[in-house]
Every structure is written in structure tokens, then in C-alpha cells.
């Protein structure tokens, strides 16, 4: 396992967000004020994001590895609504307006309707969890997310017994997402989870990273985080959550059904047709030689979350249900 040890040379990079700083938003603000400048602010926080208020650290969800730097996590993104290049979203996502934002709750539930995001968020206490993020493209990051369990939200809307799956939809708006005029993918981007997956305590709705509100390129203002599945399952900029009876259609599965299944659980034993999945390039924030020659990290079953989720798939052929 790769454990990154911070070296003195790392400290001079202003893009590195020291762990103790992002773990405590208040001291971060104080430190930033004391520095009476923006030198401590992450490079991409240039639009003065609002503080997230009280965030408690949920130490149950931590990983031994050092988190990826804020800069890496916000400049290396897959968000095809803003371009297919990894650096495109950071460059193009400024057109997204994360407020005002409404989310529609639909389908088999006692309470449905369209709600303002802030009303949806109000009852939820925010917590921080550090999760591994494994992209299907064989790279990975370690990210401190801020948010709350999806299960807490689901319970509030009281899904009925017919709700076997939860379907999610990303915004479609050619003004906020101008590249949606191109047919890169069928828009809107859609994703889905089985109800028991959605209710698993690991499944998280995130509104922030590194103690900050989510940058646009990371899926502002609200996104899903399902750490034991490949990253594309963690849909960004959600505008609709529906409780449905049938397995919902998912974007990458439509695009290439033999490559991307509905489940898409991280599984080192099942190759992607175009590459192996048993190893991953850990994106730490290092660049140049260090990144080029960093030994790869072994990919873990369910991305290291087997204890929490393996029981969800008991008796299932994970090779068939990839």
C-alpha cells in the first residue's frame, strides 16, 4: 500500500491543503485571516465559497493513506458535461450556477415534489469522511468528502415498498453546461442504485470536499459518493432523485453495455475489456518524475470496503453482474 510521507519540499506548495487545516474549517478560516491574504486558500477557491458551517469528522471513515491534494482533486476530473479531457472541467465548469438549485424527488415515495436544495439540506448535520475513489480508468484518489448519508435523506421522503431502486439525474442546461449541445453522451447523465445499496451507511451525498463547498468541477452543489463502486457511479450535480420499481438505465451502461455494468463494483478480479483492474495509479498530487515512477497500488475488492458491502452481493456472480 502506498503511504505518502510529507516531505519538507511539499510544504512550500501553496496548493497542498494540509490535513489539519481541512479537517477543521474554523481554524482554517482563522489561519487564513491571520495570514491576511489568500496564500493559504486553495488555488481554485477563487470564487470565495461559503463556509459549510459545522462539520464533524466521522473518524469511522478514514483511510491510512494521505489524501490527494486539493489541487489534484479539482484539476483531474471526469465530468463530460464540461469536456472529455481531465483538465477540461476545471477550466470550463465556471458556467455552472450551484445556487439557486432545486432537486426533484419523484416516484414511489410518500413525499415527493421539487425542493430548494437548501431546504433539502437543512435537517442534515454535515460530516466529513475520507474515502478512496477508484475510477474505472484505473486511477484513484483519496478524498475528504463533506456531506451526509444518502439513507438519511431517503428515510425523510418515505419510499414505499415499490421503491426497489433509486435513480439519479444530472442537470441538463445548455447555458450552464454549454457542451451539452454536443452528443458526447446522451444527456442527462443518469445513474442508479439498488435500494439496499442506496441505504448502505457508506453511500454518501456530498456537498463539499476538503472542508469547502464542492467546486463546480467536482459536481456542485450536490453529488453522490459510492466508494465501493467505480467513480462514474457517483453522479454529479444532481437535480432529480426517483424511487423506481425497475432497474434504472445508467449512462455508461447505455454507452457501452459490455464494458460498464449496472453494478460496477470495484473488482480487481474482473478486467475491463480494455485494461486490467487489479492495479491503480494513485493520484496523490505529485507531478513529473514522482508521479511517473510511483509504483502502482493494488486495487482492493470493493475498493477496500468489502466488510461493509460484500453481503449486499452474496450469491451473485460478480463476473456476470459486473
Amino acid at each position: 500500500m502506498l503511504i505518502k510521507i510529507a516531505k519538507p519540499s511539499d510544504a512550500r506548495e501553496s496548493d497542498v491543503t494540509p490535513r489539519e487545516i481541512f479537517l477543521n474549517r474554523r481554524s482554517f478560516m482563522a489561519a487564513a485571516a491571520a495570514a491576511s491574504g489568500t496564500t493559504l486558500l486553495p488555488a481554485f477557491a477563487n470564487d470565495a465559497r461559503a463556509a459549510l458551517g459545522d462539520v464533524t469528522t466521522n473518524s469511522k471513515y478514514a483511510v491510512p493513506e494521505m489524501p490527494t491534494t486539493f489541487k489534484a482533486a479539482t484539476t483531474h476530473n471526469n465530468f463530460y458535461e464540461f469536456g472529455t479531457g481531465k483538465m477540461d472541467p476545471a477550466e470550463n465548469a465556471h458556467t455552472l450556477k450551484p445556487r439557486p438549485w432545486s432537486v426533484e424527488i419523484a416516484g414511489h415515495a410518500a413525499k415527493t415534489g421539487t425542493f430548494d436544495l437548501d431546504d433539502i439540506l437543512k435537517p442534515h448535520a454535515l460530516e466529513e469522511r475520507i474515502y478512496r475513489l477508484r475510477c474505472v480508468e484505473a486511477w484513484s484518489m483519496v478524498i475528504p468528502w463533506v456531506g451526509f448519508p444518502l439513507a438519511d435523506l431517503i428515510k425523510r421522503f418515505e419510499p414505499t415498498s415499490k421503491a426497489k431502486y433509486v435513480a439519479f439525474e444530472t442537470l441538463v442546461d445548455t447555458e450552464q453546461m454549454p457542451l451539452q449541445t454536443r452528443p458526447t453522451l446522451p444527456w442527462p447523465y443518469v445513474e442508479g442504485l439498488r435500494m439496499d445499496e442506496a441505504m448502505n451507511p457508506l453511500t454518501f451525498l456530498s456537498v463539499g470536499i476538503y472542508g469547502e463547498e464542492l467546486p463546480n468541477q467536482n459536481g456542485a452543489p450536490i453529488r453522490l459518493v459510492v466508494p465501493w463502486k467505480y467513480g462514474f457511479k457517483s453522479i454529479k450535480s444532481i437535480v432529480k432523485i426517483s424511487f423506481v420499481e425497475e432497474q434504472p438505465s445508467t449512462t455508461w451502461n447505455q454507452q457501452a453495455p459490455h464494458e460498464y455494468g449496472f453494478y460496477s463494483n470495484v473488482n480487481p478480479e474482473v478486467d475491463h475489456p480494455r485494461w486490467g483492474q487489479d492495479r491503480e495509479r494513485r493520484i496523490t498530487g505529485e507531478t513529473g518524475f514522482k508521479a511517473l515512477f510511483a509504483p502502482k497500488v493494488e486495487t482492493l475488492m470493493f475498493n477496500g470496503y468489502a466488510d461493509e458491502v460484500a453481503q449486499l452481493y452474496q450469491g451473485m456472480d460478480l463476473r456476470k453482474n459486473f
Partner: peptide, 21 residues
């Protein structure tokens, strides 16, 4: 670009240079 990213901290090849190269 590899040299510059290593020594000057630029992000020409980004944080995943293996793929970009």
C-alpha cells in the same frame, strides 16, 4: 514537461502523466 512539472511544480502533464504521455 516532465522536467518542468518535477522541478518547477508546473502542471503541464498534470497529476496523471503516465496516461498523458
Amino acid at each position: 514537461a516532465i522536467y518542468s512539472d518535477s522541478v518547477f511544480g508546473t502542471h503541464i502533464l498534470g497529476v496523471d502523466p503516465i496516461m498523458n504521455i
